[in-house]
Design a protein around this nucleic acid. Sequence first.
DNA 1: AAGCTCATTGCACGTATGTGCATGATGTGT
DNA 2: ACACATCATGCACATACGTGCAATGAGCTT
Lengths: 320, 320
Amino acid sequence: MTASSSRSREALRAAQLYYLQHLTMEAIAQEMRVSRSSVSRLLAYARDSGLVEIQVHSPQEARSQLELRIAERYGITAHVVASPARATEADRLERTARTAAHRVAAAVGDRATIGVAWGATMSAVARHLPSKTVHETRVVQMNGAANVRTTGVSYAAELLGGFGNAFAASVYQFSVPAIFDDPDTRRALWRERSVSRVLELQASSDVYVFGLGSRIGDPRSRIYSGGYLDRDDLQELVRAGVVGDCGTVFYRSDGSTDGVAMNERSSGPSLDTVRRIPHRLCVVSGTAKRDSLRGALAARIITELVVDEELARLVVEAGG
Amino acid sequence: MTASSSRSREALRAAQLYYLQHLTMEAIAQEMRVSRSSVSRLLAYARDSGLVEIQVHSPQEARSQLELRIAERYGITAHVVASPARATEADRLERTARTAAHRVAAAVGDRATIGVAWGATMSAVARHLPSKTVHETRVVQMNGAANVRTTGVSYAAELLGGFGNAFAASVYQFSVPAIFDDPDTRRALWRERSVSRVLELQASSDVYVFGLGSRIGDPRSRIYSGGYLDRDDLQELVRAGVVGDCGTVFYRSDGSTDGVAMNERSSGPSLDTVRRIPHRLCVVSGTAKRDSLRGALAARIITELVVDEELARLVVEAGG
DNA sequence: AAGCTCATTGCACGTATGTGCATGATGTGT
DNA sequence: ACACATCATGCACATACGTGCAATGAGCTT
């Protein structure tokens, strides 16, 4: 404690001299009687421990056309992330995730409860979260990650841990299967107090951060390759006209979920539950998610959207 | 407009890529098809136009002993600014002013009215104000700056202009003498509508930023050399036991002002008026201001204090 | 239209900054 | 008490960055 606290003090001092007094690292090094490289490291520490916060303000008048059109058509705040033409899908995801990470940090405050889903997109977001000093903040996992092949614990734990660390938050895992085999098992488990306490937290979240699943018919999708669904499950989804999912809850392109039997077995929050959460931040990247994003917009489960430019164009230009 | 707006857009884009996506300037240059040096300049523009805001948070537990003792003894927030032992008085003033400038920016919000005094310290603060985008903000001069030798216009205007620019605020000058020869003239002028409108603004300020005058008996003081006071005036102050001034209003070491005749002729706000302003930010540097600061603390005209370490020690260690 | 001014750009240079590596310090477990 | 692991430090190098300068171009005046 004293060790890290004294490091924090030194980092704070260095940060004040560097960012507020505009001294060079060399000058700070002399003043603090350490080497210049130590100052460089102290400043790095100050930045990613949240001692130093760098904000980039986007004035309303600087909003892109795309963002304005999305705002107008769907009544939500959009952040369109541009990438160079030659960027790979992975690059675009990374950029979208970084932008999203900053939006998450902006959305988090004292005593906030943050619901998080899991997935490749959310993992990327978690990796890039800037630290922010807030108090009594809670992070709650919104849908189960266990499946027939693995417990999914390490994967979800790393993701949640990223959120927990960034905000010094208490983390509430949701240690249940992603999809149950039998809806009755779910109902029974939901009555367990240990589980229902987490369900209450989920429902009372202030912010819900999630990605969208797609490629429902595609055997390469994680939701298939991860062993969460078997072939019959997939066929059921395709027959039901499902185009995507949000926290393992499946919807059609018009945003409807009625009659999708699989949702009875899903561990994720129903879209009605989601819609009761005031701040719903969705992170999507990649043209493959076109239909999935359209469905989510139709379902009105998004209040703030971080999306890559290419996908945004696809969705906007198709007309609503 | 379009020119500066397109520059803002480019600066914003560069800032997002640099500060949020952590690309190098070289990479940004390629992406934006300009030279790296242009990116460097765009980022500089983004920083000092307030597009990018860099905050350094001081957690409560990192407060210095001195700050805690001042907080405890006087019930105010203190920021103690350390300087290397070999720093000159000018260096210390500069540092104190930079710190103060950031505190001012933090205190300013939409629709705020900021009262500012003038003086060497305030000039230094004005030079270092970071830009911040706020709306419908007003900056009002709190005490007159004209005197028998000069109108003081250019001097005060530059100072006020610094504040006005930083916050895109409307600036209200107070074009009256610092000290009147005849109190009746003041009373008459105070009834003028053009003047009384400014007086109302002053009284309704949300934040008052000021330095402290000292060296009351010292002919080197600006208040003397500037021609605001003559020798008789000075002797009067010394006889009255005055130790300092705040906005050309003079007080004794116990904070009292009663019976200081000169204040009847001063253009500055009475200490009672000052005490009605909720946020009162005082900036002081230099051991010569020891008695002056003590008096101001006794007068309770300070709610937030930015002070250099040496002076802070003098004041705290003397015991309250 | 020519001539002017002023802003913007890229280049080239020097300085400032980040980081792998070796070293020494600190602490921990046996 | 010793061996081991872990972490902080400074050095040296490579890279990233800021800025004076000259060239270019846009806009304005005469």
